[in-house]
Amino acid sequence: MANDEKKIWGIHTYDDALFLKGSVIAIGWSEMGNLSDIEANREAFKEKYAQVYPDTKKRSVSNAAGMLYRFLYEAQIGDYVVFPSKSNREVNIGVIEGEYVYDSSQQEYVQTRKVKWLKHLPRMAFSQGALYEIGSALTFFAVKNYADEFLAALDKNFKKNDSAEDEDESVGPTADDIIESTKDFILKELSRQLKGYDLEGFVADLLRAMGYRTIVSPKGGDSGIDITAYKDELPPRILVQVKSQDGDIKETTIQSLKGAMREGDYGLFVTLSNYTKNAQKYLDNTPIIRGINGTELVELILKYYEDLSEKYRKMIPLKKVFIPGAKEE
């Protein structure tokens, strides 16, 4: 079978020694038992997973059951596997040599397949984009975008650091992917965890982190004003309306905020979604009201994240790291 007909799989583990010394790849979910006993279709795997782990959310059931099904039925003998080991920071490339085996002697990694390791290369031998792809959050996944790079590494003429002298062109796009993924995560968590009044409390805390004093209106009787904010002890006051709805904000909704404002007030409208064209035009023509959409809100969260209350930092857990960026011309 030609290389281009073989799939390339990525896999992660907490037990590097099991993989490297035992010449296997394996995944957990030991409570699922022998996967061969489950009917050979994805729906059956989902049903079984939901029975074994009843508290798992629907999307997580689909992801986990999909990985188990993929490991047993989609991965074929002759396919390649890429395993980044943490203990020695190497990228290990092998070929699957055996069918699925349920190994009850293992405590956790009971779902196994035999593999022959072909090469063990330092991470620096690969582009940043390739490393990012095999850094997937999934346990078992298909490698697609940088498959050719990993296949090239199997060539006998491959040099471990053959790209070290050249600038890695994947650095910029990879950094952008990481940033965009982080922004998507923040917006999804806001939408999932902070509906209605809960989002008002979060926006008030963000404004506090930005240096404003805030008063959250009592539930129910706010006349369209969710938060009142002041920069200092003196006017002007800023009247804030917050919407967690999925649809774009219409012009009439912003006009209701304008109607609640007195002379000298400023308005702030915050939404997780966006504004219709007419609403955006209204905002452009009404400079005393500032509109913040979901994308702009995420930018502010990233900027002031460290000053948010611990409650919200736990709700949206982020770790500050340095990532490589493309060099400026």
Rank of each mutant, 00 (worst) to 15 (best):
F202Q: 11
F202W: 10
A204P: 03
D205A: 02
L206I: 07
L207P: 01
G211P: 07
G211C: 02
T214H: 08
I215G: 08
V216D: 00
S217C: 06
P218T: 06
G220M: 12
G221D: 12
D222V: 02
D222T: 03
D222A: 03
G224L: 00
D226I: 10
T228F: 03
A229P: 07
K231M: 08
D232P: 06
D232K: 03
P235L: 14
P236N: 09
R237M: 14
R237G: 04
I238A: 04
I238S: 00
L239M: 13
L239W: 05
L239P: 05
V240M: 05
Q241K: 07
K243R: 13
Q245K: 11
D246V: 09
D248N: 11
I249Y: 09
I249F: 06
T253Q: 15
Q255R: 15
S256P: 05
L257C: 12
L257N: 07
A260S: 15
R262N: 15
R262Y: 14
E263F: 13
G267N: 12
T271V: 04
L272F: 05
S273M: 14
Y275G: 06
T276V: 12
K277P: 06
N278H: 14
N278R: 15
A279P: 13
Q280V: 10
L283K: 09
N285F: 08
N285S: 14
T286W: 11
I288D: 13
I292E: 07
G294Y: 07
V298D: 00
E299P: 04
E299W: 03
L300F: 04
I301C: 07
K303C: 01
Y304C: 08
Y305C: 05
E306G: 01
D307R: 12
